[in-house]
Design a binder for these strands. Structure first.
Lengths: 227, 227
DNA sequence: AATTTCACCGATAGTACTATCGGTGAGGAA
DNA sequence: TTCCTCACCGATAGTACTATCGGTGAAATT
């Protein structure tokens, strides 16, 4: 009741925020197929035609959603790295490295679900953005692992580190969603699993030049890429 | 040119196969949004209205696609387990356990992409099917890991084994898709990474009752489930 | 106070898709 | 040969959504 009289631009911005919020909710519950200007406008409390006061067209809305998601993504990654650095010891630093992304996902699971879908849907308006975001996540994980002391000093190890990071990233997402679906009630157990997964993979990295043959057997026999 | 005169039911079945094949291709390249009776019928070389000779409606087509995918899934999982058992030694058995699913994905990546999308899209006609398939894959991986000698003898380890299996499964999918996208040219390297990931995780499992504290630090401090 | 701006509205043209219907001709049974 | 069956066809009714347009009233400007 203090400042209910809004200026026109404030009111417009508020409506725009409502549209974006509504769009995210619909995207999460009904997918890109279910996202229509009719539903978004109705959920935001305005007429369907007024949608076009705020966005040039539907494509434009998706683009804005992608941009906002990207910003939120970058901010949360910076924040995560900052917080992990504050851990008292190495073990806790390791656990933080995996706990923080897990908690971030659980706070805004709809963003991951939307990205996840777009990542594998070539027809999605957010497909390219989702691919970039996915690579950014992988590189973030790779940097995390490097920060834990596992550096790659040659091309082969660099590629391996990327693979490990991508694998760990996928596992993190899967466990977070499993937690949200109620299958894994204890998030700390998920942290344990991720820590141990990474330990195994990074053991390989450390011993790659010396005992590669013993660790993984004859490796060079390369199968070409699949069809 | 030998038996071009087909019976009517043979010809009908052929058309049906063409429709299913076309639907899968469109689903892969354009997503569920782009899957229309117009496109499917045209790609199969028949009139749009003739679509309804073969399927009651679009939903029916999706259901059939799900069923066929399920069959193919179960067959390929059985086949994979059979082949892995034939490996000459333990190391090769381990590698086969991860190589076989990787190769299976690379042979039919469109199936994984379609499932992946539906898995995270509540509006998808194949959503429930994709969730079940995902759990089936996880349990398949869990059985594989158990076959490698890592058994869970209590409730906590059973849940951990499930988490490890789900994580490894997600990593497998991610690496296979990365390989297909050209980021990881050597599939054998992906096998190495998966083997090492699993080794790390299963080390935790084996030592869970005895040396849990040394392996992962204080573990019991349980944080509740997230929001 | 007079005028302009503009966020929002209802109506609607245009587009794309789903599903039905009556017809047709070649396969198959009598 | 005669009749029936049915996979396929074109046309079309019905539905859902996108995007545009002229109008309206309150905020903002003069």
């Amino acid at each position: 009741m203090s400042s209910t009289p809004l200026t026109r631009s404030e009111a417009k911005d508020l409506t725009r925020r409502r549209l974006i919020r509504a769009a995210l909710a619909i995207l999460d519950t009904e997918g890109e197929t279910g996202l229509t200007t009719v539903k978004v406008a109705k959920a935001a409390g305005i007429a369907q035609s007024s949608f076009y006061v705020h966005f040039r067209d539907k494509q434009d809305l998706l683009r804005v959603l992608g941009d906002e998601g990207g910003d939120r993504l970058r901010r949360s990654m910076r924040e995560a790295r900052r917080r992990a650095r504050e851990a008292p010891d190495v073990t806790e630093h390791q656990r933080d490295t995996f706990r923080i992304p897990l908690e971030a996902i659980c706070r805004h699971p709809e963003l991951l679900r939307i990205l996840h879908r777009a990542r594998h849907d070539p027809s999605s308006s957010m497909h390219e953005f989702a691919k970039e975001a996915s690579l950014a996540y992988r590189d973030h994980h790779a940097a995390d692992l490097a920060a834990l002391g596992y550096t790659a000093d040659n091309e082969r190890d660099r590629l391996r580190l990327e693979m490990i990071a991508e694998g760990i990233n996928a596992a993190t997402n899967a466990l977070a969603l499993g937690h949200l679906e109620g299958r894994y009630p204890d998030l700390e157990e998920a942290v344990d699993v991720l820590v141990s997964l990474s330990k195994g993979a990074l053991r390989m990295l450390k011993s790659s030049s010396a005992a590669a043959a013993r660790e993984a057997g004859p490796v060079a026999g390369g199968a070409g890429p699949g069809g």
